[in-house]
Design a protein around this nucleic acid. Structure first.
Length: 435
RNA sequence: GGUGACUUGGCCGAGCGGUUUAAGGCAACGGUUUUGAAAACCGUCGUAGUUAGUAGCUACCGGGGGUUCGAAUCCCCCAGUCACCUCCA
């Protein structure tokens, strides 16, 4: 959420930023509207405060007069207070309405972009930061992972479609084990890098989804429960970012508790996955997938360094697995709603002959923290300050499985297991056709 | 799922319709004292809105609504916590 004072006092800056995000004319006029709403709300705020103040004083007088048994004077004041009360009710209704408009509008605008974010509208304009590893040269035609999986008899999309629908999958045997091995390896690596594991709910309420920015704008991307939880709408999480970051919603942390480094394994559920007609085969784009997420809560002055070290941690995993990748700085048009700066890691997929996103590491600055009211207090300082929030995949499990299958495939249709994963695979060195 | 008790500032805890502008204590912070520390004493000590303002005013006592001239206090709905019962992995 944007700072309402920034909108009120520095509308030009905000409008410039919206231009950089390629905001529509509608959005620009909405922003102008917001600025007017804030001004009007403040006006009303002052008036209602004054009215309330005089009502309070007069009501107190009634108390005194009652004790002195001056009942005739009481009636006159009562009438006066009633008049004030009626006027107050009227203005208060308007103020509440404006306050809601103000909050709704504020929630609808994306974060301000970091100065390093390149101009651009699509992934074509993303900036290449670095490339690691050399794509292997094959002396045979490398296959896509879903072909390999089907041929091994360890990947079953058809039955998954029967029992659940399109964009679900079933893994069997060593492939299922490899998925678990990756999860375990990611969590162990995160722990070595100083992250504490948390195991969190996979269903969250509306307030949490609003806190991290999925709501109110992207409700159609989420799976919504038909049953309420705790009297509120329930949603399946699209990423562990939501439950983990929201752990600190409505909290004022101690300065010495920062930074907080957490990691979490969760399934992720995305309703939007089926809407593009892209990646219709295989594990790339599913309604349900697994991810290990890295999350940091930091002081503002440390967030940039923390963001870059988190990104390095994600890179480290790809390096340990020997998977070639490139690191991209996302352009303005590709940077997500809540982020101010984002790096995508794209892993090399020989079967597709291209790089595909496997991790997205974002610094949200104070955008999420303002929505969540996540603050910290410095020693000796009176006012609490907003924290910064950061997260990134470390890594997306299903897509890593894809990358391993495609990069480590052999001409006999088997897949070698990277050395670091072998201990998690009961010492096995390769996955072969099922007997 | 059933019944009952409860939800007040970082924590504990008063408060039972009108000098409560939320008492008091603990913790924390600043100061006096001291060679230093402890103790003692003095002071500060929730969040947010409004504002040029650490001035004033206003809101917030789990959330929402209502009664009233006036609500932390009375009523209703919802959520959460705890206890017991029931059920279950």
């Amino acid at each position: 959420m944007l700072d309402r004072n920034l909108v009120a006092n520095n509308l030009e800056t905000v409008l410039e930023q919206l231009h950089k995000r390629h905001a529509s004319e509608d959005m620009l006029s909405e922003m102008n509207k917001l600025s007017a709403v804030i001004a009007r709300r403040r006006e009303l705020q002052t008036k209602t405060d004054e009215l309330r103040s005089s009502r309070k004083k007069l009501s107190k007088q009634i108390g005194g007069l009652m004790r002195e048994k001056k009942l005739d004077e009481v009636d006159a004041i009562k009438t006066e207070v009633t008049t004030i009360g009626n006027r107050l009710d009227l203005l208060e209704d308007e103020r509440k309405d404006l306050q809601k408009q103000e909050d709704d509008l504020l929630h609808a605008f994306p974060n301000l972009l970091d100065a390093r974010v390149p101009e651009g509208t699509s992934e074509e304009d993303n900036e290449l930061i670095e490339t690691w590893g050399t794509p292997r040269t094959f002396d045979f035609e490398p296959k896509e992972h879903h072909i390999l999986g089907e041929e091994m008899g360890l990947y079953d999309a058809e039955r998954a479609a029967k029992i659940a629908g399109a964009r679900f999958s079933i893994l069997k045997g060593d492939l299922a084990r490899l998925e678990r091995a990756l999860i375990q390896f990611f969590l162990d690596t995160a722990e070595d890098n100083g992250y504490t594991e948390v195991l969190v709910p996979y269903i969250v309420n509306r307030d949490s989804m609003t806190g991290t920015g999925q709501l109110p704008k992207f409700e159609e991307d989420l799976f919504k429960l038909t049953s309420e939880i705790g009297g509120m709408d329930g949603f399946l999480i699209p990423t562990a970012e939501v439950p983990v970051t929201n752990m600190f919603r409505d909290e004022i942390l101690n300065e010495e508790d920062l930074p907080i480094h957490l990691c979490a394994f969760t399934p992720c559920f995305r309703a939007e996955a089926g809407t593009y007609g892209k990646d219709t085969h295989g594990l790339i784009r599913q309604h349900q997938f697994h991810k290990v997420e890295l999350v940091k809560i930091t002081k503002p002055e440390h967030s940039d360094a923390e963001h870059h070290s988190l990104t390095d941690h994600a890179c480290g995993i790809l390096q340990a697995l020997g998977l070639p990748y490139r690191k991209m700085r996302l352009c303005a048009g590709d940077t997500s709603f809540s982020a101010q700066l984002c790096y995508d890691l794209e892993v090399w997929l020989p079967g597709q002959n291209k790089y595909r996103e496997i991790s997205s590491c974002s610094n949200f600055g104070e955008f999420q923290a303002r929505r969540m009211k996540t603050r910290f207090r410095s020693k000796g300082e009176k006012k609490p300050k907003l924290c910064h929030t950061i997260n990134g995949s470390g890594l997306a499990v299903g897509r890593t499985l894809v990358a391993i299958m495609e990069n480590y495939q052999q001409d006999d249709g088997s897949v070698d297991i990277p050395t670091v994963l072998q201990p998690y695979m009961r010492g096995k060195t390769k996955i072969t056709l099922q007997d």
